[in-house]
């Protein structure tokens, strides 16, 4: 790629940062060039987040209908699967899966809840509830 063709499509997701890439300059040598974003890359990343938001919206519904516990929301919000979360907390995978059931979750002791809450960096009360929908969480919001 020629240096002058390095895309500079401002991507707000970079949060003001730039990334470095390599391109050929006028003298025929390859050098590093800073880029503020590329539309194609932005769209690919966006599609991943869209997928995550969709699952999260579905989970929200399931929790409201009493099919899942609030833990499911916090787990998915932090991009964990039950297996991965269990590994990180030193629990059994089936234990975490069981805690996704509202009935079991509401009977959990303070100490187990604390373990989850601490890991996600939230309070126990926050863990017990699902926050109201955020703007950037909407399935179709860009």
């Amino acid at each position: 790629m020629r240096k002058e063709f390095v895309p500079q499509d401002l991507d707000v997701g970079y949060e003001g940062h730039k990334r470095l890439c390599y391109a050929r300059g006028g003298d025929g040598r390859v050098e590093s060039v800073a880029s503020v974003g590329w539309e194609v890359e932005r769209e690919a990343t966006e599609s991943a987040w869209k997928q995550i938001r969709q699952t999260l919206a579905k989970t929200r519904e399931d929790i409201a209908l009493g099919r899942l516990s609030p833990l499911a929301f916090h787990m998915e919000k932090n991009l964990f699967t039950p297996t991965l979360l269990a590994k990180n907390l030193g629990m059994w995978c089936w234990t975490v899966r069981r805690h996704l059931k509202p009935k079991v979750f509401h009977r959990l002791s303070e100490s187990v809840l604390r373990k989850y809450a601490d890991y996600f960096g939230i309070s126990i009360d926050e863990l017990r509830s699902v926050p109201s929908e955020l703007k950037d969480e909407k399935p179709d919001g860009e």
């Binding site: 790629m1 990334r19 470095l20 890439c21 390599y22 590329w38 194609v40 890359e41 769209e43 690919a44 990343t45 599609s47 991943a48 997928q51």
Partner: peptide, 17 residues
Amino acid sequence: NRLAFVVRMQEEIGTGG
């Protein structure tokens, strides 16, 4: 989604494009 994933692995920050 899978195709988009291939693109992300290729282009997202850290690959230099």
